Simulated scan of single mutants.
Amino acid sequence: MEQEYTSPPDQWTMHVGGKPVGTLISEGFDQPWILCRFDPMPGWSSQLQDLFEAQNEAARSGFPADQMWSIKEIREKGVELRRNSGTEDRFTPLIVYVENGKARFRG
Protein backbone atom coordinates (compact mmCIF):
# COMPACT_ATOMS: atom_id res chain seq x y z
CA MET A 1 0.00 0.00 0.00
CA GLU A 2 1.46 3.34 -1.05
CA GLN A 3 1.44 6.15 1.43
CA GLU A 4 0.56 9.63 0.24
CA TYR A 5 2.72 12.41 1.59
CA THR A 6 1.51 15.95 1.86
CA SER A 7 3.63 18.89 2.80
CA PRO A 8 2.53 21.14 5.62
CA PRO A 9 0.78 24.34 4.60
CA ASP A 10 2.88 27.40 3.91
CA GLN A 11 3.11 29.78 6.85
CA TRP A 12 4.20 33.38 7.04
CA THR A 13 4.66 35.83 9.86
CA MET A 14 3.14 39.19 9.00
CA HIS A 15 5.20 42.16 10.15
CA VAL A 16 3.83 45.71 10.21
CA GLY A 17 6.30 48.47 10.86
CA GLY A 18 8.94 45.82 11.51
CA LYS A 19 6.96 44.16 14.33
CA PRO A 20 5.43 40.68 14.11
CA VAL A 21 1.64 40.95 14.33
CA GLY A 22 0.27 37.60 13.19
CA THR A 23 0.74 34.26 11.51
CA LEU A 24 -0.82 33.47 8.14
CA ILE A 25 -1.37 29.76 7.43
CA SER A 26 -2.17 28.90 3.83
CA GLU A 27 -5.58 27.29 3.30
CA GLY A 28 -5.84 27.50 -0.49
CA PHE A 29 -5.93 29.72 -3.52
CA ASP A 30 -8.48 31.83 -5.33
CA GLN A 31 -6.26 33.29 -8.02
CA PRO A 32 -4.73 35.76 -7.69
CA TRP A 33 -5.27 35.50 -3.92
CA ILE A 34 -3.59 33.23 -1.39
CA LEU A 35 -6.20 32.40 1.26
CA CYS A 36 -5.04 31.95 4.85
CA ARG A 37 -6.07 31.54 8.44
CA PHE A 38 -4.88 34.50 10.53
CA ASP A 39 -3.64 33.92 14.06
CA PRO A 40 -2.91 37.24 15.80
CA MET A 41 0.22 37.74 17.86
CA PRO A 42 0.65 40.17 20.78
CA GLY A 43 1.64 42.90 18.29
CA TRP A 44 -1.86 42.83 16.73
CA SER A 45 -3.31 45.90 18.44
CA SER A 46 -6.87 47.19 18.40
CA GLN A 47 -5.58 50.22 16.47
CA LEU A 48 -4.09 47.96 13.78
CA GLN A 49 -7.24 45.84 13.68
CA ASP A 50 -9.35 48.98 13.21
CA LEU A 51 -7.10 50.06 10.34
CA PHE A 52 -7.51 46.72 8.53
CA GLU A 53 -11.27 46.83 9.17
CA ALA A 54 -11.38 50.28 7.52
CA GLN A 55 -9.52 48.83 4.54
CA ASN A 56 -12.03 45.96 4.33
CA GLU A 57 -14.89 48.44 4.36
CA ALA A 58 -13.23 50.46 1.59
CA ALA A 59 -13.00 47.30 -0.53
CA ARG A 60 -16.65 46.37 0.12
CA SER A 61 -17.66 49.91 -0.90
CA GLY A 62 -15.73 49.83 -4.17
CA PHE A 63 -12.76 51.92 -2.96
CA PRO A 64 -14.34 55.38 -2.75
CA ALA A 65 -11.81 58.22 -2.58
CA ASP A 66 -12.80 59.21 0.96
CA GLN A 67 -11.94 55.70 2.26
CA MET A 68 -8.58 55.22 0.55
CA TRP A 69 -6.74 56.64 3.58
CA SER A 70 -6.72 53.22 5.27
CA ILE A 71 -4.98 51.52 2.34
CA LYS A 72 -2.42 54.32 2.18
CA GLU A 73 -1.79 54.18 5.93
CA ILE A 74 -1.28 50.40 5.91
CA ARG A 75 1.21 50.72 3.03
CA GLU A 76 3.05 53.51 4.82
CA LYS A 77 3.38 51.37 7.96
CA GLY A 78 5.14 48.73 5.85
CA VAL A 79 3.69 45.22 5.64
CA GLU A 80 6.12 42.38 5.10
CA LEU A 81 5.52 38.63 5.01
CA ARG A 82 8.30 36.32 6.16
CA ARG A 83 8.04 32.62 5.37
CA ASN A 84 8.23 30.39 8.46
CA SER A 85 10.35 27.72 6.83
CA GLY A 86 13.77 28.48 8.22
CA THR A 87 14.69 30.41 5.07
CA GLU A 88 15.10 34.13 4.66
CA ASP A 89 12.14 34.35 2.24
CA ARG A 90 10.42 37.68 2.75
CA PHE A 91 8.44 39.99 0.55
CA THR A 92 6.12 42.95 0.53
CA PRO A 93 2.68 41.85 -0.69
CA LEU A 94 0.71 44.05 -3.04
CA ILE A 95 -2.19 44.04 -0.55
CA VAL A 96 -3.28 42.04 2.51
CA TYR A 97 -6.78 41.80 3.93
CA VAL A 98 -7.40 40.52 7.47
CA GLU A 99 -10.91 39.88 8.74
CA ASN A 100 -12.58 37.47 11.19
CA GLY A 101 -9.59 35.16 11.63
CA LYS A 102 -8.96 34.97 7.88
CA ALA A 103 -6.45 36.69 5.65
CA ARG A 104 -5.82 36.88 1.94
CA PHE A 105 -2.98 38.46 0.08
CA ARG A 106 -1.58 39.04 -3.37
CA GLY A 107 2.11 38.87 -4.05
Rank of each mutant, 00 (worst) to 15 (best):
residue 1 M to V: 06
residue 3 Q to G: 11
residue 5 Y to T: 10
residue 5 Y to H: 11
residue 5 Y to F: 09
residue 6 T to C: 08
residue 7 S to K: 14
residue 7 S to N: 10
residue 8 P to A: 10
residue 8 P to C: 03
residue 8 P to V: 03
residue 8 P to G: 05
residue 9 P to M: 10
residue 9 P to A: 11
residue 10 D to I: 06
residue 12 W to I: 01
residue 13 T to N: 07
residue 14 M to K: 10
residue 15 H to M: 08
residue 16 V to G: 05
residue 16 V to R: 09
residue 16 V to C: 10
residue 18 G to I: 11
residue 18 G to N: 11
residue 20 P to T: 09
residue 20 P to W: 11
residue 22 G to P: 03
residue 22 G to D: 05
residue 22 G to Q: 07
residue 24 L to K: 03
residue 25 I to W: 02
residue 26 S to A: 12
residue 26 S to I: 02
residue 27 E to F: 01
residue 27 E to P: 00
residue 28 G to S: 08
residue 28 G to Q: 11
residue 29 F to W: 09
residue 30 D to G: 13
residue 32 P to H: 10
residue 33 W to T: 04
residue 33 W to L: 05
residue 34 I to H: 08
residue 35 L to C: 14
residue 36 C to G: 03
residue 37 R to Q: 10
residue 37 R to P: 00
residue 39 D to F: 02
residue 39 D to G: 01
residue 39 D to K: 13
residue 40 P to W: 05
residue 41 M to Q: 15
residue 42 P to A: 07
residue 42 P to H: 12
residue 42 P to Q: 08
residue 43 G to T: 02
residue 43 G to M: 07
residue 45 S to P: 14
residue 47 Q to R: 15
residue 47 Q to K: 14
residue 48 L to Y: 09
residue 48 L to K: 11
residue 49 Q to S: 15
residue 50 D to P: 02
residue 50 D to Y: 04
residue 51 L to R: 08
residue 53 E to R: 07
residue 53 E to V: 01
residue 54 A to S: 02
residue 54 A to Y: 00
residue 55 Q to M: 14
residue 60 R to Y: 02
residue 60 R to E: 01
residue 61 S to M: 04
residue 65 A to L: 12
residue 66 D to C: 02
residue 67 Q to V: 00
residue 69 W to Y: 10
residue 69 W to G: 01
residue 72 K to D: 01
residue 73 E to M: 12
residue 74 I to K: 06
residue 74 I to F: 07
residue 75 R to M: 09
residue 77 K to F: 04
residue 78 G to F: 12
residue 79 V to Y: 05
residue 81 L to H: 03
residue 81 L to F: 04
residue 82 R to V: 12
residue 85 S to Y: 11
residue 86 G to F: 08
residue 87 T to L: 11
residue 90 R to S: 10
residue 92 T to G: 06
residue 92 T to S: 12
residue 93 P to V: 03
residue 94 L to V: 11
residue 95 I to M: 03
residue 95 I to Q: 01
residue 95 I to W: 00
residue 96 V to T: 15
residue 96 V to G: 05
residue 98 V to R: 07
residue 98 V to S: 04
residue 100 N to V: 03
residue 101 G to K: 08
residue 102 K to I: 02
residue 103 A to V: 06
residue 104 R to W: 06
residue 104 R to S: 07
residue 105 F to D: 00
residue 107 G to K: 15
residue 107 G to P: 15
residue 107 G to Q: 14
